[in-house]
Design a protein around this nucleic acid. Structure first.
Lengths: 159, 159
DNA sequence: GCCGCGTCCATTGACGCCCATATTGGCCCA
DNA sequence: TGGGCCAATATGGGCGTCAATGGACGCGGC
């Protein structure tokens, strides 16, 4: 398995530590990255996290803009400038910075959500509502695809 | 055989384990995927399950959206975020998570239903009524088609 | 010093893995 | 063609290991 999938909710202990789910850790290990690369998600109260794959993605995104262009500088600042590399302890735990926790509204528990190439860290309650909203959108798209292609479901549509 | 077909009902044991039908397992083996990829079906109380073929479908669906777009993030959360890869033990059994069981209303038995590229897992009673309803629709459709060409029974129909 | 952080150790509960049994269904042979 | 043998599937249970969590110790730095 080389993708982040599923979601789990785990609690922070008194020292602010939280275990990274074992399945996510194994993906990170395979990816070969010592630590956890993360930054506040651009347009939502969550933390984006991942390893080398995520860093490459960001690099590619920024490389689309010409060097020294305004957009490039802004993207670089927004992504690189706010990112952190968290240390993972012997038990597979990390300590989120105050800045990250504030951005996501995290208090004493977090939800780890697999997104394929990366994963996000949410305050559990906020994730619940986000998920409900997202599910509605997917349903709408599926309905759209279904009506376009007649009785047959389009490839990729859920039943 | 590289498609999931037919349906079987099996019981969960005291530890919540349930055998995957041997015919389904052989398809999964051919597909080359160690484990069972599954997620709650979008608009019905069932669990979608499969191997690499199913994962590719999801991947293709998400790839429609550009990286870092809001839609992509939401789709990834709704699809990858709710997926799980279940481990298959030496006897070909899996343990369904509480979340999955809750979605499908599963208690102590499940019905495995082949759908070609993937299969679904239902609470047996619910599947019976779903099947009855589907049969009605197929009958109605068949009546509409009347004596047209080869309007034989549609695949999956029960007389 | 005191506080924060990093490393190490302990507990407990879940889960993976192994072995045992049964019941089904197919196959072979008379 | 019928009976019985065999194999594979479905199911039950025990046990060891690992993950998640909590806490202790020690080395810095402000």
């Amino acid at each position: 398995m080389d993708l982040f999938v599923s979601n789990v909710t785990l609690r922070l202990d008194a020292k602010g530590r939280v275990s990274i789910p074992a399945s996510f850790r194994s993906v990170l290990n395979r990816d070969g990255f010592d630590g956890l690369y993360c930054y506040p998600a651009l347009d939502r109260p969550a933390i984006d996290a991942g390893g080398n794959a995520l860093m490459s993605e960001i690099e590619a995104l920024i490389a689309r803009f010409p060097p020294y262009s305004e957009e490039r500088e802004q993207f670089a600042a927004a992504l690189y400038g706010t990112s952190e590399t968290l240390r993972i302890d012997g038990e597979g735990r990390v300590v989120l910075s105050e800045h990250l926790k504030a951005h996501a509204g995290i208090k004493d528990a977090v939800a780890f959500v697999g997104l394929g190439q990366k994963f996000q860290i949410w305050e559990p309650e906020r994730f619940r509502s986000e998920l409900a909203e997202a599910t509605q959108k997917v349903r709408a798209l599926k309905a759209q695809l279904g009506s376009q292609s007649g009785a047959r479901n389009a490839p990729g549509a859920r039943e």
